[in-house]
Design a protein around this nucleic acid. Structure first.
Lengths: 371, 371
DNA sequence: GTGAAAGCGCTAACAT
DNA sequence: ATGTTAGCGCTTTCAC
């Protein structure tokens, strides 16, 4: 494994001087027309005589001219980029949503400017400012910031903004969500039904709404069974919803809570970390401890053991958000809407010793509702 | 599971009229200064008297003014965005690289414009054009296009371009790569050592260089053992490196190739799909068929069975690429460099029936070489 | 069908 | 310390 360092050097084909940008002016000169005509072949080709058009096209090709969005936009054109602000690029839940949004937006000629805040409100503010300076045509965002005022203001300044996986709570914004309270309830209820009476909830920071809601759901499930939430659901808060924090959290959990028979995680990344931590500690899942995750990301079903999780329609969330955004950007006299999906529990091996792991809600219809 | 549709309607707080953008002019008027002064508090605050500065800042806050990147850039300012073009946002390999690049670039004040081509050369061209129109400060790209000419031209037009996970092959471009031939060789050699004499290689399209190289490596491994590559390595080509195609590919594989004892996959996503397909078909891994993946993404070690894979320094690749880009954008008299990493085989349960799955190369140093 | 010219919002050089 | 002004590259009337 000790390869000698590779030495390779590519001689620069371009002279050290910074290349000057080709402008419409040079194209015009080369084609011997006015810049207005060049602009026309770019924007209204049919207004230009075929011969002239060809000449101009030739000049464009020859010079390598590429029009400047800056100048275009300044002169009144609309931007073709949409800011997408998410909590974590490394989380498949978000990337699936992004894929949905991208698919819906690409056909309309938009590019996505993807910003990952890593759950930092400060970084979120930074990115939002940059996006606004760029006059993006819209913003899709899963806020890290608890307060939505800045987003309402952003929308007020003419940048259509749609909340991704976060409800507007009375604010004048469109949103696409999944019922996280219900999801948390499904997960916890499942563990209680299995007979567990004291479950650990590995959760993220309370600044993240999803975490708060899932916790509420878990406690609701406890209450409904006549249990005392504070006793039935023991919460361990980790700084971020990542594999690493799930793994580290597990160590703390095992120290603090000696007798533990079930762990519920705020998302699948944490659950993966927890599974890892438990494996390291030599604890068998589900025989000794049951584990459930949240999101049902692609790899959940193939983990060892297969992970019980709460499924969310990730791709659809992205598509729906993109559609709301397009709608909003087309008509300013638009009423804000909240699209809401229902989560679905998918039971697998990690939460049951049963020999035949099956999908509990396999045939249940996922329901999409909106107002 | 049949919840009644939610009805909720948020009344618009903003009047239907499209809000007009606040310009520097209005801020100046409100603060009773000239636009030049406003510009100065924005760009050279120290040149402005504290009293005036406060007044202007107040006016900015009051009006909600946000400077236009378009006008700024037009006037000669540099863009603060960097285009990142990857093959697939849903692939953890790429998102890890992106995270590395983001971390390195964020501190310098850049935002990433993330474009996922889904391995389509056409979409790549489309995105590159948009990025160039935006005059991005640079481009990091894993090309879907086989030819690099367009990228060399792009760099020639003044947009620093760095290849991600693709070598320049004599072209005047910087690149960051991992030795994929070696990686393919490691994976195949491992299977041959296990005694398998006929392995299936589930590979992506040959337009993707990674696929070509890994294949070459596999065939080289065969040759080194005195085997006939065409017989020892049976290739199945799937349209894209995704879980879905891995799963579908497995079905075809099982029909076409009756006696099969090992499968090597061009990446972990495919391998995950293959594992799924085999599980569906009731075939035991590794007892009946051994499986190895490529990339060693985060979930590989936790799959059932844990996946043997070829590890690549994903995050570091992103960081290194970002650094090359920054270097190139700072000095135009810059010599292109090729940074190259070595891959590392990580043996786990999916390729051995051994009771104690261990990391084979756990202690081997990852070596970074560059010219 | 083509050209001339105004101006988008801003920065920077120059005046005051 | 602040104001004035000339463009940056383009689109878009409006003449010709």
């Amino acid at each position: 494994m000790s390869n000698p360092p590779l030495r390779r050097r590519v001689s620069p084909a371009i002279p050290p001087a910074a290349p000057r940008r080709v402008t419409i002016r040079e194209v015009a000169d080369l084609a011997r027309v006015s810049i207005g005509t060049v602009s026309n072949v770019l924007n209204n080709p049919f207004l230009v005589a075929p011969v002239t058009r060809e000449r101009v096209l030739g000049a464009i090709a020859e010079t390598g001219f590429v029009r400047s969005t800056a100048a275009h936009q300044l002169r009144g054109g609309k931007s073709r980029s949409i800011g997408v602000v998410i909590l974590d690029v490394a989380n498949p839940f978000f990337t699936e949503m992004v894929r949905g949004a991208e698919q819906a937006l690409r056909d309309e000629g938009y590019v996505l400017v993807l910003c990952s805040t890593d759950e930092s409100a400060e970084r979120e503010r930074h990115y939002l400012r940059l996006l606004e300076e760029q006059r993006v045509a819209g913003v899709l965002i899963t806020p890290a910031e608890r307060e939505l005022d800045a987003l309402v203001a952003l929308a007020g300044r003419g940048i259509p903004t749609v909340l991704l996986d976060r409800e507007a709570g009375g604010h004048a914004l469109c949103s696409v969500t999944v019922d996280d309270v219900r999801g948390g309830e499904l997960a916890a209820a499942h563990l209680f039904e299995l007979g567990h009476r004291r479950i650990a909830f590995v959760n993220g920071p309370s600044s993240i709404r999803q975490c708060v809601d899932r916790r509420r759901g878990a406690r609701r499930a406890a209450r409904q069974l006549g249990l005392v939430p504070d006793e039935a659901v023991v919460e361990l808060t980790v700084p971020a919803l990542t594999i690493e924090h799930g793994e580290q959290g597990t160590e703390r959990l095992l120290q603090v809570t000696p007798r533990l028979d079930a762990v519920m995680c705020a998302n699948d990344l944490l659950a993966l970390g927890v599974l890892r931590g438990l494996a390291t500690a030599g604890i068998k899942v589900p025989d000794e401890i049951a584990v459930v995750g949240y999101d049902d990301v692609a790899f959940a079903s193939m983990l060892s053991p297969a992970l019980t999780s709460v499924r969310q329609p990730k791709f659809e969330l992205g598509v729906a958000a993109a559609e709301l955004l397009l709608e909003e950007s087309r008509s300013h006299a638009h009423e804000h809407r909240e699209v809401r999906y229902e989560p679905e529990l998918v039971v697998r091996a990690s939460s049951q010793a049963a020999p035949h792991p099956r999908t509990a809600a396999a045939s249940s219809a996922r329901r999409r509702t909106q107002s």
